[in-house]
Amino acid sequence: MYALGVAIDATLITLVLALAAFGLAIIFGLIGVINMGHGAMLTAGAYITWVCQTNGVPFLLAVLVAAVAVAVIGLVLEHVLIRHFYDRPFETLLLTWAFFLITTEVIKIIFGPEFRSVTNPLPDAITIGGIHVPAYRAAVALFALALIVTSAVVLYRTSLGIKIRGLIQNRQMAALLGLNIGLTYKLVFMAGCFMAGLAGGLITPMLSIDPYIGNVYLVRSFFVVAVGGVGQLLGGTMIGSFLIGGSETIFAVVSEQAVAQTIVFALAILVLRLRPRGVLTPR
């Protein structure tokens, strides 16, 4: 009974974390940019959702608006700064970090440091095997699963996916074969930002929003991607999320939340050291 509760909890947390990390996984895995602004994009998505909802926009539409808005912000960032630095990963890391600083400040200026909360559209609980599960959390988890599987299908079963994968494998050859590299990079970057905004909007009913909620999600998302294996969008994100989020849930049973997170971060660093290319990739 108790074990089932922990298992359900771990599954939900895994899937929600996978959703939060997915935008980072796309950008890092496909075009090699560590988007340090990922956390700020989640936060921006959350705040835009909050603004829309307080102005009477239905929740799902609000989330969609947030995702599109963050994608547009991402497009501007990519076009003005990032595209000039694709061959210098370290510079893109610093620039996206600057984006994080500026976005967080702008959010603080506009909304102030107070906590905000979004009304939960599905406040009820459903019962699985005698365990009460918040309906909204379950819905988001299912959505995350669907989203990641769909993205994997696009990447591995469509011609757009073939183009993107070809680009990753050999940029020069892809260009010679007539692929518009700049445009494809832009699309991928925007897709990642869209996912970040979407995740930011969807997590809002589960926690209270402040300008720094993205901070911890950035590091967690990064560890999800690094532990799962960069570029392993489907399996890597899932396994990484399970190892980071799931184990945090399990450790949180025996110790405090903050200690559990510290243990998990330490374990993630250990994995980075022993398997720098992720647990899925053979050494």
Partner: peptide, 21 residues
């Protein structure tokens, strides 16, 4: 980390995690 040749970009995040911890 250095003895395993962990990438410089990873080092940034690990040290960031250190701060959070």
């Amino acid at each position: 980390l250095f003895s395993a040749g962990v990438r410089d970009t990873y080092f940034v995040i690990v040290t960031l995690a250190l701060s959070i911890m």
